[in-house]
Nucleic acid binder design. Structure first.
Length: 257
DNA sequence: AAACAGGGCAACCGCATACAC
DNA sequence: GGTGTATGCGGTTGCCCTGTT
């Protein structure tokens, strides 16, 4: 296996971090800031590569991290944002102050995924699994839940093949969402829908979305955006669509305040 | 008590993108 | 515009802990 550019010239330690290493990194960053990550190991007196230091700081040592198990509300936010963005963990984590992309990803893979499957939902698409899958993965509650699931999967953001393309403006940032309603009431059930050839607007119970339609064949282009409470536009992401409706191609996130 | 299996999580790897020159 | 380096991100791996046999 190859090594990073930043650690190719030096012998670097790998594996778990010791408390001493943590202390060195914390001390260095709190006094000097991280600056250029590739120079951090040397300056901090660590035999790690810069990438490893960065990861350790972001995922574990940062003082603003909220540790401990995820709350139900956080779980709902993850599920709802994942339904829109797919496996874009960094984007999802931005809606959960104090949580990291790695944490969200691990939580998804270890817990949420299983819960969704047990509810008869495909964790990738958030659509109903085939009865075959449901039978295999769940014993009792799949049928009980099917009505609820149908409601949940009636997402305002599913873009069908007929929809040429859409850019979605979120008029309310997720971080300022009011508490989610009880789980039997999906926040994403569209209450109104206006559509013409140029714009499609979805207004949800908690979120307002508008989409702009542009032809980007062969794949539709979906741009997500949100508007901060200050009123400035915050484009969130854009991505070409795959058949599941999630963005596959990575695009840069531009944030303007 | 020991062996084994499974799950959770920290860390690593490789790729994409940004940025500087 | 081309090249090299740094950073960010998502997928994956592997270790450690806990529960089960």
């Amino acid at each position: 296996m190859g090594h990073h550019h930043c650690c190719s010239k030096q012998k670097v330690k790998r594996g778990l971090w010791s408390p001493e290493e943590d202390e060195k990194l914390i001390k260095h960053i709190t006094t000097h800031g991280h600056g250029c990550w590739s120079s951090v190991p040397k300056l901090a007196g660590l035999q790690r590569c810069g990438k490893s230091c960065r990861l350790r700081w972001i995922n574990y040592l940062r003082p603003d991290l909220k540790r401990g198990s995820f709350t139900e509300q956080e779980e709902r936010i993850i599920i709802d944002v994942h339904r829109i963005l797919g496996n874009r963990w960094a984007q999802i984590a931005k809606h959960l102050p104090g949580r990291t992309d790695n944490e969200v990803k691990n939580f998804w893979n270890s817990c949420i995924k299983k819960k969704l499957i047990a509810q008869g939902l495909d964790p990738n698409t958030h659509n109903l699994l085939s009865s075959h899958h449901i039978n295999n993965n769940n014993n009792n509650n799949a049928s009980n839940l099917s009505h609820h699931i149908h409601q949940q999967t009636t997402s305002a953001f599913s873009v069908t093949s007929q929809t040429k393309n859409a850019s979605i403006d979120m008029k309310t940032p997720f971080v300022t969402l009011p508490p989610f309603p009880p789980s039997d009431t999906s926040p994403f059930i569209p209450t109104t829908l206006h559509e013409n050839s140029i714009n499609t607007t979805f207004e949800c119970q908690n979120l307002n979305f508008s989409s702009t339609v542009r032809d980007q064949s062969p794949h539709s282009l979906v741009e997500f955006g949100t508007q901060s409470s200050m009123g400035s536009t915050v484009p969130m992401s854009s991505s070409s669509l795959n058949p599941s409706g999630f963005g596959m191609a990575r695009r840069e996130l531009h944030v303007e305040y």
